[in-house]
Design a protein around this nucleic acid. Sequence first.
DNA 1: GTCTATACGTCGATAGAC
DNA 2: GTCTATCGACGTATAGAC
Lengths: 205, 205
Amino acid sequence: MTTHETPDPAPAPPPVPGAPESPPRRATRGSIVDAAVALIADRGFSATSVDDIAAAAGVAKGSIYYNFGSKTALFEAVIVEGVERLTAALRASVVGLDGPAAIEALVTELLVQVQAHPDFAKLVVAEVFRTGRDWQHSIRQVREESMAVFADVVRATWPDRDPSLTAAAIFGATLVAGLEWLAFQPQRPAADVRAAVLATVLPRG
Amino acid sequence: MTTHETPDPAPAPPPVPGAPESPPRRATRGSIVDAAVALIADRGFSATSVDDIAAAAGVAKGSIYYNFGSKTALFEAVIVEGVERLTAALRASVVGLDGPAAIEALVTELLVQVQAHPDFAKLVVAEVFRTGRDWQHSIRQVREESMAVFADVVRATWPDRDPSLTAAAIFGATLVAGLEWLAFQPQRPAADVRAAVLATVLPRG
DNA sequence: GTCTATACGTCGATAGAC
DNA sequence: GTCTATCGACGTATAGAC
């Protein structure tokens, strides 16, 4: 860094004529994240090597370190991106609703998300309650955003109940029933799961 | 998975599960199991080394291999013993009860167990839904015994509901609310958690 | 039965070619 | 920006002393 090197933003690779603004980095990043979610959900963080992720993503190990810096940083990115996507979906599902209808919408949307991203759901369940991990703070921050969506609806629906604990209970009921379904009873229709959860967490209706 | 592959259950190693235990061995075994639960719950299986467990238990690494044969076998023992204890406690809590009172007793007892063995509770949540692990079969077997206690009570209480999915929902609501409490709101009284869960999973009454 | 010492393999991270 | 080759650190499991 002392001698004269060109510290400028590196020139882009040869753009293929006809390829519409396809940053090679986005594709690489995306495939790495996808592979990491799938592998870590199944085997856990430490049991999944960076070599495994690179092989599954179809990239070289060096590319992972170029794009994310470290294995821990990669995992943090996976968690943060996933939870932000989940939070956005939950928020969107309750727009214009309140009361029991809003609770019903949240439960339904969470089940949809669990079915759409089962690996990520497993990963969240496996890692949220850990305390001795480097990414604890990242997880905790996004966790609270997601939980707040539930807590706000609970507060507006049942003013006499504890918002955060009730939100955790409803969230847990939905998530665990959804994973029970995907992991052990995948042949059941989604409607069965939704019906069972709603019958459990909503008063007679 | 690991380094040298031990060619399956070979009769070579001295420690045979089920063999009569000499008194000195029990103390060593117990301290190893306790240390393993605490460390693995916090950091995960692969992130916890046998050296760490040995140090926390106050024994030498060789003693762990003498008593359990492998790191995987140690973890299986931890899981099986813990879930059997939980199942026994749940069964005992509903003797002579049925209907909503039995549900209430199960929820209460599960919260008591979560509070009494928080490390084990975290560990269970982290590992139950994994599929790519060696001990998958051990976990699944004991998991079903515990879940059956809930499902039986659900079946007797609400004949119109799906037993296994409803059991999963109630179990999930209780466990996640309990861990939310221990991990993020430990200052709250236990009664708050119990009240929130019961208000969520039991119809007005 | 429990300890210490060590062999053998794997993993995260880096360097440098292209 | 992505690749290959490689290094140092650490982890499981075993051998043999006590």
